[in-house]
Design a protein around this nucleic acid. Structure first.
Lengths: 145, 145
DNA sequence: ACACGTTATAAGAATTATTCCTATCTAGGA
DNA sequence: TCCTAGATAGGAATAATTCTTATAACGTGT
C-alpha cells in the first residue's frame, strides 16, 4: 500500500513519525489515489481535523514544508495566488490546466522536456532542479457564462 | 517611442489617462527596455514614488490589474510566492528561469508550444487563454554556497 | 519497560501582501 | 468652463502564512 511505503520513507529520512504527520500524509495519499486536484493548506487542515481535531495550522504548514523539502510533496502556485500541494510519486509526472473562472484543475499528461533541455543548454551554469508548466483557460461550465 | 504607443493604446481602450497610470506605465517600459527582470508591486511603487511621491499602493495594484486585464501587462507568480509584473509586447514571448536561493530571474526564449497544442487536443472543451512555464534551479553565485 | 534529550506541537500573536472603504478629486467630453 | 463617471489617497480590514514560546511526545539508549 502506498501509505505504508511513504511512512517507511519518512522513517528513512530520519524525521519523527508523529500522528499529525501520518494523518497529513494519509490525506495526500487519498487525494492522489482518487486522482483529484491538488489540495490547499486549508483543505488539508480541514481533512486532517476530521480525524485529528486538535491539529494546528502551523503544524500543517510546517509538515508540508518538511515533506516538500524531502521531495515527497510538490508545492504548486497558480496565477490566482492559490498555493496547493500534491503527493510526488516516482515515475509519475504531470502539469496542470486551470480554469481562470472557477479554479477547477485538470492534469496535463505532457511535459515540456524539450524546452527544459534547451533551457539547460542556454544556461549551462545554472543547476536546474525543477520546473512548472501551467495552462490557463475557461472550463466548459464557465464558458457558458 | 514605446511609451507613447502604449499611452495611445490606453486611450483607445477607453480608460482615463491619469498621471499615476502614466508613471506606472513608464516604469514598466523602462524595465522592459533595459531587459531586466519583472517587477513586484512594491518595486513598482518605489520607482513611481521617486517621481510621484503621493501614489498609494492601492492605486498601483488597481492599475496593474487594469493593465493586466487589457493585456498590456503580464502577471507572474513564482514558487517563492512572489508576484511580479512585466510589460507585454506583441511579437515578443518568453518564460522564466528562477534561482531558488536568491530569486534572480532570467528570460527563457523558448516556449512549450507543442505541449500547449497537445493540451488543446486533450481538453478541446476548454477555452485556453494563456500559459506559464517556469524553470527553477540555482544560479552560478548561489551554487557556490 | 523507562528515562531523557531532541524535536514537534498547540495556541495565539505577529507579519506581510493585498484589497476594501469612503471621502475627495479630476480627466475629458459636452 | 462645467459636470460627472471614474480614479485616487489614506487608512482600515482581510487573509494567508510565519513566528514565539511553553508544553508534549518520539524513539534512542539503558
Amino acid at each position: 500500500m502506498v501509505l505504508e511505503e511513504l511512512l517507511e520513507q519518512l522513517k528513512k529520512i530520519g524525521i519523527r513519525l508523529t500522528p499529525q504527520r501520518q494523518e497529513i500524509m494519509l490525506v495526500l495519499v487519498e487525494r492522489f489515489q482518487e486522482g483529484g486536484p491538488p489540495l490547499s493548506a486549508d483543505e488539508i487542515t480541514r481533512h486532517v481535523r476530521m480525524r485529528y481535531p486538535g491539529i494546528s495550522l502551523d503544524t500543517v504548514y510546517r509538515t508540508l514544508a518538511t515533506f516538500t523539502k524531502e521531495g515527497l510533496v510538490r508545492e504548486l502556485q497558480f496565477r490566482d495566488h492559490s498555493r496547493r500541494f500534491e503527493l510526488v510519486r516516482k515515475g509519475e509526472h504531470h502539469h496542470h490546466l486551470v480554469c481562470l473562472s472557477c479554479g477547477n484543475i485538470k492534469k496535463i499528461p505532457y511535459c515540456p522536456e524539450d524546452c527544459l533541455e534547451r533551457t539547460r543548454e542556454c544556461y549551462p551554469e545554472f543547476e536546474i532542479k525543477d520546473h512548472s508548466f501551467n495552462v490557463y483557460g475557461y472550463c466548459p461550465k464557465c464558458r457558458e457564462d
